[in-house]
Design a protein around this nucleic acid. Structure first.
Length: 480
RNA sequence: CGGGCUGUGGCGCAGCCUGGCUAGCGCGCUUGCUUGGGGUGCAAGAGGUCGUGGGUUCGAAUCCCGCCAGCCCGACCA
């Protein structure tokens, strides 16, 4: 495996990101399939942990996993006007199968609201059938014109929750409950602070009444929409004729929700914590939490060192890097690039003293720990690292969030910001959710990321574009 | 999808402008010895349809055209 240097963030953030993904052995461009990537073992292992964390929480809130077909009749997409308009440009369509032209083409799902709507209509008749709480782990395809590994790929892995309720209130509760689950996983597991909020009309999901999102801030100050939860109202219920008889005996359309997070989270994870030496994984998401690097000269040393290394590794669930012909130094670099939280160095010196050297990936701090205390110390270090990574990310988010009171100010702050140059900010300003305002922001390629659910600022004020009264400041930023 | 840059052993590149022996270099890889607490050193090896298809030419990595892919910008984008 060739190991090239990593471009420093300072020089080119976008190149740095590429390097970290590649050198961290997370993924690589598929090349033979445009815009797609191969998720490699190190990357997929992180995804599996994320899946488990999310899935446990979905189950705990009453959801069940299901699986629907990858192919959807083209006509389904057209049943909800806004939905088709939103997705039509990015659909991949199957027109030939079994050597014959299909009578009706199938689209490869960009998302599954439509096909699920079809089945909801079959399954739901009575208020007693509600709520229906389902989740699907799947791949989807969206023919994006510009892709970046993990952040936006043509095919990606995600989960999509789909629920149906008898009242709007209940649906909204569901939407917010899931938004909380997403925020919890982002913050507690990924150590990535996020802002929960409502998407502007311009940015909401095609076919939704309202969309909610969690927005994270990457190290270059760009926003990343890390998860969305949609209040679909009765739009899909009406489009797919999903009716039920309520307690009063009247027919009504169901109130639906849908919500999703994807492998994009991994991109967010990387851009939240990694550094110029490579990947940094928060302990809770690290497939390998520790590696013991044995150091020895002679064969008798080797035997003793390896014996102790395996004993320690067993106690803490670590891996021993026994590769022959690799110097310890080379091994340190190897694991550093791959984001392993803790590396334990163990050599003859340590055997003599009964100690070991424990090194933290995030701070680079080395400490000498008596071997007997390693399990306890290891646990503490992982906890501290998890907490410190979150705190550092949160401090960065705070430091790069600014208040602005005129559109000129907002433009001044964001105009020159790009993914590679960095310098991005979250600008908090009063702005009406209106096409005129969106257009003004577009002049310098910024968008409203969301309207925070919790107003941590000064309440109502006048829109900096239209002058109309709005009830709180919104998050304006450049985004991925 | 428009613009720019790029594609040469596993990786990073040189060669291309100005066509010409057996296509070089560094890293990595294999074997042996050596070394080992932050990328050990030495030696001997293996490994290339020059992204791809066509064209020009006595001759193409090199010139021309198409296509594919990657990166950046733009437009687009839960």
């Amino acid at each position: 495996m060739a190991e090239s240097p990593i471009t420093p963030r300072e020089r080119d953030f976008a190149a740095w990101y590429q390097d970290v993904v590649l050198q961290g052995d997370m993924a690589e461009p598929a090349e033979i399939v445009k815009g797609c990537m191969v998720i490699k073992p190190n990357g997929y292992a992180v995804w599996e942990i994320l899946q488990r964390e999310l899935d446990d929480r979905f189950k705990a809130t009453g959801h069940q996993n299901v699986y629907f077909p990858l192919l959807i009749p083209e006509s389904f997409l057209k049943k909800e006007a806004e939905h088709v308009e939103g997705f039509a440009p990015e659909l991949a369509v199957v027109t030939i199968a079994g050597g014959k032209q299909l009578e009706e083409p199938y689209v490869i799902r960009p998302t599954s609201e439509t096909i699920i709507g079809h089945f909801f209509a079959k399954w739901i008749q009575s208020w007693r059938d509600l709520p229906v709480l389902m989740n699907q782990w799947a791949n989807v395809v969206r023919w994006e014109l510009r892709t970046r590994m993990f952040l936006r790929t043509t095919e990606f892995l995600w989960q999509e929750g789909h629920t149906a309720h008898s009242t709007h209130e209940e649906a909204v509760e569901e939407v917010l409950r899931i938004l909380d689950v997403y925020a919890e996983v982002a913050e507690d597991i990924m150590a990535m602070p996020v802002i929960k909020g409502v998407k502007s009309k311009a940015e909401k999901f095609a076919g939704a009444l309202r969309s909610y999102s969690i927005e994270g801030m990457m190290q270059n100050g760009l926003a990343l929409q890390a998860g969305t939860s949609h209040d679909l109202g009765q739009n899909f219920g009406k489009a797919f004729d999903v009716k039920f008889q309520n307690k009063e005996g009247q027919l009504d359309y169901v109130w639906q929700t849908s919500w999703g997070v994807s492998t994009r989270l991994i991109g967010g994870l990387i851009m939240s914590h990694s550094d110029d030496k490579g990947l940094v994984l928060p302990p809770k998401l690290a497939p390998v939490k520790a590696v013991v690097v044995p150091i020895y000269r002679k064969d008798d040393e080797k035997v003793k060192v390896l014996e102790a290394a395996h004993r320690i590794a067993k106690e803490i669930g670590a891996k021993v890097d026994e590769r022959e012909g690799q110097s310890p130094g080379a091994k340190f670099f190897h694991w550093e690039r791959r984001g392993v939280p803790v590396v334990i160095e163990l050599g003859p010196r340590d055997l003599a003293s009964g100690n070991a050297v424990m090194k933290r990936r995030d701070t680079g701090t080395k400490e000498i720990v008596p071997q007997s205390e390693i399990p306890a110390r290891f646990k503490d270090v992982l906890e501290a690292m998890q907490k410190d990574l979150f705190n550092a990310a949160q401090a960065r988010l705070k430091a790069n969030t600014v208040v602005a009171n005129s559109i000129g100010e907002v433009e001044e702050i964001l105009r020159e910001v790009t993914a590679e140059r960095g310098g991005g900010k979250f600008v908090m300003a009063h702005l009406k959710d209106d096409a005129v305002c969106d257009a003004r922001l577009k002049e310098f390629k910024a968008t409203v990321r969301n309207i925070p659910l919790v107003d941590e600022y000064d309440g109502a004020g006048k829109c900096i574009v239209t002058g109309e009264e709005v009830d709180r400041r919104v998050v304006i930023a450049k985004s991925y």
